[in-house]
Simulated scan of single mutants.
Amino acid sequence: MKLNPLQRRRLANFRANRRALWSFRIFLVIFLVTLCAEFVANDKPLVVRYQDEFRFPVLSFYSEADFGGEFETEAEYHSPEVRCLIRTGGLEACLDDPEGVYRQAAETGAVDGTPVAAPGWMLWPPIPFSYDTINYDVASAPSAPDRVHWLGTDDQTRDVVARVIYGFRISVLFALVVAVISSAIGIAAGATQGYFGGWIDLTAQRLVEIWQNMPSLYIIIILSAMFTMSFWLLTLLIAFFSWTSLVHVVRAEFLRARNFEYVRAARALGVGDVTIMFRHLLPNAMVATLTLLPFIITGAIGGLAALDFLGLGLPASYPSLGELALQGKNRLNAPWLGFTAFFTFAIMLSLLVFIFEGVRDAFDPRKTFK
């Protein structure tokens, strides 16, 4: 795609800000890893070779019966029985003595004189646990970091690294959706007020002031008691209380620029109000808008973490960084939980602030980097 001179200048300004550029690169790598979390941290193998066939449990459902077992429920790939069934090609003897049968098959190629099929194998992701996987082999909960669990386990013996990966993804996606919805509402409201002015501006400004001073936390607490919270319901609630922060700066920019000469010329040529607002005036308000955007995103992440910390956010089935912070508070004998939550939030929010600082400067015509 060919860039125009203005876009090239903005891109050059962003690249010239080394802190923003490196923050973007680091955040992009982390975010891409978390987007593919199912292939990085999962309690299902990526690939299984069973009886000369390749199967992909991470993408498809396979029951234990599909590997020669007894049950139609999904296979527990960590269990010794299922591992033995896959490795020996589905011998029923694995259900009685999985370790002994596999050892005999590996040494002699047969079990009690019965030749085994071609040996199977499983390719696991780097972290063989999902965010909700309970490791029953752990002696105590929470357990300290070791070779199996790099950051230890929480109070339910769930792997902390897996919960951080999934929690990072859901926090960032939540914040981005909140920012998009809030920006759309706030920019539209501020542009309408600033462009038309008069009684429209006065009436809308009073409504915005009333909405802005509503106790959002108490309303969310009341609604969480009335409804079962979900990702989209909580996203809409946070967004409906975040858009007002953009109204004032967008309104001020439109009030300042609505009587400029190029706007009058556009009106004289018969250009519609909507076209003037969003094609000619909105670019001038982008710097002020982008200045507040990192605060909306970081505020959304902090709001989600606070609600999860209080037990009023996402359901318990979701991986939550706020819930991890709560465990760090309640489990002072497990400092790895608190430190993990703190450094995850610190790194995530710092990178986002640095990135949007560079984006803001790139859109500012007064900023020029060498």
Rank of each mutant, 00 (worst) to 15 (best):
M1K: 08
L3F: 14
N4G: 15
N4I: 14
L11I: 15
N13C: 09
R19I: 13
S23T: 13
V29H: 02
I30Y: 13
C36D: 09
A37F: 13
N42G: 02
K44D: 06
P45F: 09
Q51L: 15
D52Y: 07
R55W: 13
S60Y: 14
G68Q: 11
G69Q: 01
G69W: 04
E74A: 13
A75V: 08
E76D: 15
H78S: 10
L85G: 06
T88F: 01
L91K: 04
D97M: 07
Y102K: 14
E107P: 06
D112A: 15
G113E: 08
G113H: 05
A118H: 14
P119C: 07
W121E: 14
W121C: 06
P126R: 06
S130F: 04
S140K: 14
A141D: 01
P145N: 01
R169H: 06
V172K: 06
S182D: 12
A184E: 01
I185F: 02
G194K: 11
I210C: 02
M214W: 05
S216M: 12
M226W: 13
F227G: 04
T228C: 02
S230E: 10
L234S: 05
I238C: 00
V250A: 05
R256N: 12
N259E: 13
L269R: 03
R279M: 03
L281F: 04
A285D: 08
I297N: 08
A306D: 12
D308Q: 00
F309H: 09
L310P: 03
L312I: 13
G313D: 04
G313E: 08
G313I: 06
L314S: 01
S320R: 04
A325R: 06
G328F: 06
N330S: 12
P335L: 01
W336C: 00
T344I: 02
A346G: 00
I347D: 05
M348T: 15
L352R: 00
L352D: 04
F363K: 10
T368V: 13
